[in-house]
């Protein structure tokens, strides 16, 4: 199951595989976790007279197909911002894709971008949640800053995390990453061309940057 470039880790006694396609496979639940796909972005821009190639959208879907074929999950949890904005032709592409994979159950945790589309999602049979408890975690789009429930651990996206490295000779670079900390797991944005945001992390955190198609572990690097 583990390919070159994948990274297996254990967290809260659960087994995860971090895929460089920017997704997490959760073995115990046979679940695939993805955040911030921002599908339909290109169509949304095109409608407004701004030419963003539709290949941006199809690339997202073919990457999704690739990991679905590989991990064969029973369920996919979309952790919010599945769609970039109002429905458009690229929605059809997504429906086609979903119909091609009938054996996979799909659930959506609503993100800030998704509110445009709740009726369409529901008509289509994509179950929507504001947050969802999947033991021992809580799946949510935007993990609140001050976490009240000390005993719960959140899995979320929203901020499109990346980290920055600095080196001798005034070098620096940044990479999208997964971040595991005491009470949360952050996923990088799955959608291509979505931008990233540098995160704060402490020494206790485990950060896994994606470098040239493989998930690296910081402890091996530094």
């Amino acid at each position: 199951m583990l390919r070159d470039g994948d990274k297996a880790i254990q967290f809260m006694n659960q087994d995860f595989i971090l895929a460089p396609e920017k997704a997490i496979y959760w073995k115990e639940k046979k679940a695939l976790l993805l955040a911030d796909l921002h599908l339909g972005k290109s169509g949304h821009f095109q409608k407004a007279g701004i030419p963003v190639s539709s290949e941006v959208n199809s690339e997202n879907l073919s990457r999704l197909q690739l990991i679905t074929d590989h991990f064969k999950p029973k369920v996919i949890y979309y952790l919010g911002d599945l769609f970039h904005s109002a429905m458009n032709a690229e929605w059809r592409e997504f429906k086609l894709w979903k119909n091609k994979n009938p054996e996979v159950l799909m659930k959506l945790i609503l993100g800030n971008h998704d509110f445009y589309a709740i009726p369409e999602y529901e008509n289509f049979g994509l179950k929507c949640f504001h947050e969802l408890e999947v033991n021992p975690f809580i799946l949510i789009h935007d993990i609140p800053d001050k976490i009240q429930l000390e005993d719960k651990v959140f899995i979320g996206g929203h901020i499109h995390p990346s980290i920055r490295f600095k080196g001798k000779g005034r070098q620096s670079l940044r990479a999208s990453c997964f971040c595991f900390s005491e009470n949360k797991i952050l996923l990088p944005a799955f959608g291509s061309f979505t931008g990233t945001h540098n995160i704060k992390s402490s020494k206790k955190d485990m950060v896994f940057p994606i470098l040239e198609g493989s998930v690296a572990s910081l402890s091996n690097l530094i």
């Binding site: 980290i163 920055r164 990479a175 945001h197 704060k200 470098l211 040239e212």
Partner: peptide
């Protein structure tokens, strides 16, 4: 204010670097 250029592999570069922790999110 500097321009950058590299022909090294990303992973090799990161190996020589340090994680830069941002001050704020």
């Amino acid at each position: 204010l500097r321009e950058k250029m590299s022909t090294e592999k990303l992973i090799d570069r990161v190996k020589k670097m340090q994680l830069q922790l941002e001050k704020h999110t």
